[in-house]
Design a protein around this nucleic acid. Structure first.
Lengths: 103, 103
DNA sequence: AATTTGAGAAACCAAAAAGTTGCACATATA
DNA sequence: TATATGTGCAACTTTTTGGTTTCTCAAATT
């Protein structure tokens, strides 16, 4: 089983869960209320997100609150870094080209 | 078939292809040399990347050069934006807490 | 003590994904 | 013109994924 952050965010339901709990922790039942799939399916998504450490749990009696491990999101940001460099370079090249043409 | 950028970058081979052609355009055969799967499998990945407009083609005789549509990468960046806001806020909150404690 | 509620685990199923082999076809090259 | 090369497409197979239903278990409530 692969189980990395890119595979985790590939599923639209999981992306929605991530967005949903980004601001406040929520229980699986509360999360499931926002979708029309079973709570068990949500539970499976949460397990995947937990395994990827995108999400953390906090038990409170019989309820479990899930919240976003925000720093994990930076891994995607880090991967994007290489392309950010390129798109900045391309803009500079375009810029230089325009300047050269002016002369 | 889903076919969005998140599904596209979920596959490690496709991420490798993206990185590979980020700097210079390459033909399917040249790309396939870097992996130990068949050229046809690479061809399928390229089709998916093309459908997502992550990659563009340029025919040159019987060869087809694939290169990265760098601006598409910004879509991921855009999705990350919401979390970037949160992690900045959290840092500020931590910062405020530290300041308050000092007093 | 009995019942309800919140949650995860297991077994199962259908659809999708990622690979393979084999084929067709256009463009180069001998 | 015959052959080699670069590429994409189709059919098929295996594995993975996302969902379901059923079950168990612990914590709350009656």
């Amino acid at each position: 089983m692969r189980r990395d952050i890119f595979q985790a965010i590939a599923d639209p339901t999981r992306r929605a869960i991530i967005t949903l709990i980004a601001l406040q922790a929520m229980t699986p039942n509360a999360i499931a209320d926002n979708f029309n799939i079973t709570r068990q399916a949500i539970s499976k998504h949460l397990r995947i997100l937990t395994e990827c450490e995108i999400v953390k749990q906090e038990q409170q009696g019989r309820e479990i609150y899930y919240s976003l491990e925000i720093k994990k999101m930076k891994e995607i940001d880090k991967w994007l870094e290489q392309f950010r460099k390129i798109w900045e370079t391309r803009f500079n090249q375009l810029d230089n080209l325009l300047k050269t043409n002016k002369k």
